[in-house]
Design a protein around this nucleic acid. Structure first.
Lengths: 192, 192
DNA sequence: GACATTTATTAACTTAAGTGAATGAATTTG
DNA sequence: CAAATTCATTCACTTAAGTTAATAAATGTC
């Protein structure tokens, strides 16, 4: 798994073997079993999550209904809001497939930034890029209909539709499972 | 305007007078007149924008229709995607009110990070916080109906509804101007 | 001040999403 | 393997959003 992570980092900057060793020494890799819940509503974790293999899901429970808003697959992840804010988490993060993830905490970051300032640059670049992507996705979401969102997902992340239960995809697309089912019916009818 | 900016920064870290002077020396403040377009679709700006006073608007033109996806008011702003990606901009940024903004470029950042590493920490913290906020807003958007979104906006940013034309608010809320008008009619009828 | 443009609303009609309920298939679990 | 749970689909019905068009008010411009 080190290789997967280092290849990813190599897109942003070059690490010396010292620096790589410092990351390995942090002992950040963790195996997670399908179904395990990493974060629950009301909890105060300090862990950020980054997926090396597998898939995590972020969801809220509103009026007793699960509302999935994100999936994290290979080379994706997030730092939960509660890590930054000290407020209890408003949502859950669970594991959809047996996964290997890396976890980090603000303390670990502070420690490694002090030793290797380069890592702070890395984190800055990553969060700037993620911010831009998040804003882009949000704009696209606002500018498109449920059908366009589904087709867009099909075009950009076809694997998700295979890996993930459809009713979870539905709330990810901002609609109900019934609507998604109907929408797919309409589409396959059109493309006979 | 320096004071406004420095007070904002003070929420994240403490600056020495040397560091403040370095910012002033960058000469980043700029007056923008209502109606001015700061960024057009197809352009390749290197400028990020941060509003000290006034209001900017981000919009796309799709099928000849303006789709507003963001407003930036006091102490808000963004670094356009084209700054990061070298791709031409997919959207416009225009000025809704006579405004005072600060602009920055990656070159300016590199220069000041080299002199004062603290500024890189500031930028990391800011983009991490903005990322969390962006993800939060996106989640809320997915989890709510147009009516809930409008009511939420009314509760959290009542000033926007005064400052901004309603048809621009509509696409910001992910609906058409007609739907927003109807929705408001429904609401005022309920609350007689 | 007259004219053009922008903005907001309203209405009639179409389309699609939400809701509640039922069903069967697939998957999980004891 | 049987029972329970989860998952996907379908249906009938309700609600609301999209669309097209018309109108009037507000705003900006020569």
């Amino acid at each position: 798994m080190e290789k997967v992570l280092f290849d990813y980092i190599a897109n942003y900057l070059t690490l010396t073997s010292d620096e790589k060793q410092a990351i390995i020494d942090l002992d950040i890799f963790r195996q997670v079993k399908k179904g395990e819940i990493l974060l629950k509503e009301g909890q105060h974790t300090k862990n950020g999550y980054f997926v090396l293999k597998g898939c995590l899901r972020k969801y809220y429970i509103l009026d007793g209904i699960e509302k999935t808003t994100s999936f994290y697959t290979e080379l994706e992840g997030e730092v939960p809001e509660c890590v930054m804010s000290n407020k209890p988490s408003a949502y859950y993060i669970s594991c959809l497939e047996d996964s290997i993830i890396s976890t980090s905490t603000p303390d670990m970051e502070a420690e490694i930034f002090a030793k290797f300032p380069k890592f702070e640059t890395l984190c800055r670049l990553l969060s700037e890029e993620l911010l831009t992507k998040s804003q882009n996705s949000f704009d696209d979401f606002k500018n498109s209909s449920p059908e366009q969102r589904y087709l867009n997902l099909l075009a950009t992340k076809p694997d998700l539709i295979q890996r993930v239960p459809l009713h979870q995809l539905a709330s990810f697309l901002g609609i109900t499972p019934q609507s998604l089912s109907r929408l797919r019916g309409r589409l396959t009818e059109k493309n006979l």
